[in-house]
Design a protein around this nucleic acid. Sequence first.
DNA 1: CGTCCAGGTCTAC
DNA 2: GGTAGACCTGGACGC
Length: 235
Amino acid sequence: MRAEDGFLIASCEEPVDARSRARIATAIGRMFRLDDDLSPFYASIAERDPLRWAVQGAGRMLASPTVFEDVVKTICTTNCTWSATQRMTAALAERGDGAFPDAERLAATPDSWYRDVARMGYRGPHVRAVAGDVAAGNLDLESLLPGRGRNDDEVREALLALPGIGPYAAAHVMQLLGRHQDLVLDSWTRPKYLRLTGKRRASDKTMRRSFARYGNYAGLAFWLFLTRDWLEDAG
DNA sequence: CGTCCAGGTCTAC
DNA sequence: GGTAGACCTGGACGC
């Protein structure tokens, strides 16, 4: 994949039929959040805002091809080190023969695999339960995407109802859904906020309040504030 | 070797 | 509604 004249070009060496092309385009559109129009946010920070540097196009987070994959991966980030997350997701990809396994595959995977191969601990039953509900048609995670008639409150409620998904994970998945209101508060963002602000301590409520003026983009503003040093040319 | 805790969540008060 | 305790795993750390 490459950028060219304002377009995202995806190419491969083998010929691809029309049906596959459509699937690939859908997946890439979702991964790069091409439906996420950030122009209202950029307009709000264009003048006299500490985040004004972001109008050059920052804040577009890479997502997975499906919401299901993002939910499962996010469960694999909770209460463990990043290396553990990588190990679990690598095992899942192996279970899908190189690609992330779909819900049917994960639902049909025995508990022993989650425990003994992926070594997911207590997360295993959570992932399997979500996969089971999706595979059975009782849960449509893709319907949480924007433009499908659900507002942020409804989506948050739906995510929090999932086993293994709490406030942190729900906020994280919602960012990937282009629902940028909630702040992702965890053991990485909290100390990073303190370091950048020079504060000795700050409650979650305090952090939310200080970003509340960004409205529906408060969570995105928080993330940009925390990750500005990831950019080399942020003015 | 034991303790602590990492990009938390759930249950039971 | 707010908060202690338990929870798989495994890497870091002190002893």
